[in-house]
Design a binder for these strands. Sequence first.
DNA 1: ATGAAAGCGCTAACAT
DNA 2: ATGTTAGCGCTTTCAT
Lengths: 330, 330
Amino acid sequence: MAVAASVSRATAARALSHHGYVGDETATRVQEAADRLGYRANRVAQALRSGQLPIAGFIPGDIQNPFFAGIAHDLEVELRKHGHNLLIASSGDNAAQERELLESLRALGLCGFVLTPASAASSQHIAKLARDGVPCVLIDRVAKGARCDSIVVDNVGGARAAVDYLVANGHRRIGFLRDDSQIFTAQERLAGYLRALTGHGIVPEKQLIARSRSVVEHAIAATTRLFRRRNKPTALFTVDSLMTQGALLGLRAMGLQVPHDVSLIGFDDFSLATFTDPQITVVAQPTAEIGALAARLLIERLAGDMADPQHIRFPTQLIVRGSVSCPPAR
Amino acid sequence: MAVAASVSRATAARALSHHGYVGDETATRVQEAADRLGYRANRVAQALRSGQLPIAGFIPGDIQNPFFAGIAHDLEVELRKHGHNLLIASSGDNAAQERELLESLRALGLCGFVLTPASAASSQHIAKLARDGVPCVLIDRVAKGARCDSIVVDNVGGARAAVDYLVANGHRRIGFLRDDSQIFTAQERLAGYLRALTGHGIVPEKQLIARSRSVVEHAIAATTRLFRRRNKPTALFTVDSLMTQGALLGLRAMGLQVPHDVSLIGFDDFSLATFTDPQITVVAQPTAEIGALAARLLIERLAGDMADPQHIRFPTQLIVRGSVSCPPAR
DNA sequence: ATGAAAGCGCTAACAT
DNA sequence: ATGTTAGCGCTTTCAT
């Protein structure tokens, strides 16, 4: 390539990267030669020199969850504008796998990460990442002790709003369907649920809280368990859209009608919610903003921004549809 | 690292990669030193030497489409077993963007690709990829002239089965909602639709075929246009799940009931289909097999398999639920 | 304004 | 069985 333009490799590199002094005429000559030959700098070689591949890593719990798929898309679009690509590796909400993934991807020289920590507690690996100066933004969940940017939503407030609304409709036995993991959001949402109940003078009951993996099939089983008991809840609050789906299916299988027999509110809006009859009342998150903002934060860090980590918390919004009514008379 | 084990860098490399002769004792010494120091080989440097990053590229139309998100997940799992990672870049079903993406990712040294060609016709870039010996498997759609493996489903047969079923239920004015692009699947599904109609002695009408981008909002508009005409169809066949969603929403907005006013069948099963009332009859694809198989084919190619390209076509299956009934009396 | 040379971290060929 | 050396393709001093 350099020889085609009859200049040294050094000059060619300067011309193409617009760095340092290059004569105008030389610059155009190099440019033309490059175009003619369809030359593209080997990014791996560049990465070896610079220590950084132009690839960011996204480590969500599960790319099949539409919430994460949407964010992945937005990240990708935004990063691409700045010449970066996106590598996606799902952790399955498993902290050990997350750590392993992170380690192997660091050896790959990725320039930064966007991740959804699988566990609020065991997050030394993330703290270390940040300590080593690898740009890293946490979304949806935070990790204790990691000095990095984070973007979350008001989980406590969202859960409270849901429970308040159920109580206002006369419910006092409100079930809570949460996922089984150490996930930060589930903990916060549980806190909001408990606080709201207490605020209304209702004593939380352990038997009304069901756990399952965040997988539709498991959520169905958990729902069934919850509603098989004699003193069943009159309403149910689910912590994410996969669990909401499971609950819907579980209730249907038991012949329980929403909202006639059971009222339902889910955390996280999802397309399915408006296709059911009745439509599902949900606590919505600003999904469209999270991915783009995360990308922007990451890009600023990549550009060398060393300011203190930013911790952003978006509000949530209760979207009232038709899945809540007054509890059935006894 | 090498010095910590007091061996040469070469020996260390041999010990860790289990290549060439290394004394047993030396091997363990190196291994220990590596563990102790938390040493991980720089994969970028390895890539520079070998010319290949251990990363495969997945270029779907849109990662937000659950069909592709599911495949992405399966690809990832399968590739990880063999030490490879997955980079995802959506083409937006735009052939130009796909070409650009492919070019920039090749410069990145990705070891292979799984892609869903945006256009059946303009696929020189894919043909070139294959010619240059880059392993590449096409899924969901094929690309003319590209010598690479492909995995598709029986689109013609699936569309026929849907139309046959509608005709068997007494429909003769059957609308077709397709996407606007050059996508191979839409063309095949259209062919199946037309052939089935002709087979039943029904003359296809151009006015019954609506086009829109494969985006819910656009599909709503297209549906509305189709059903505003005086002589509206009594049934509708949609070409993918996003269009099916759009159709559902469009019909609902017009106050048309499924299946009372309009019967509906969609291509591609999706979770929403069982949550609507009535549930939607669909042509299902073996989604769980496609990703895993694609990964396996890619891995074989990476291992040096030079055999002729394999072209695999999976059958589809009509899943009858409740969205089809006899056409309303005139 | 341009060229020469060194080196990023690794491994395969060759030498011992 | 192990060490030495060269070179993957690039960029960036440093010299001219």
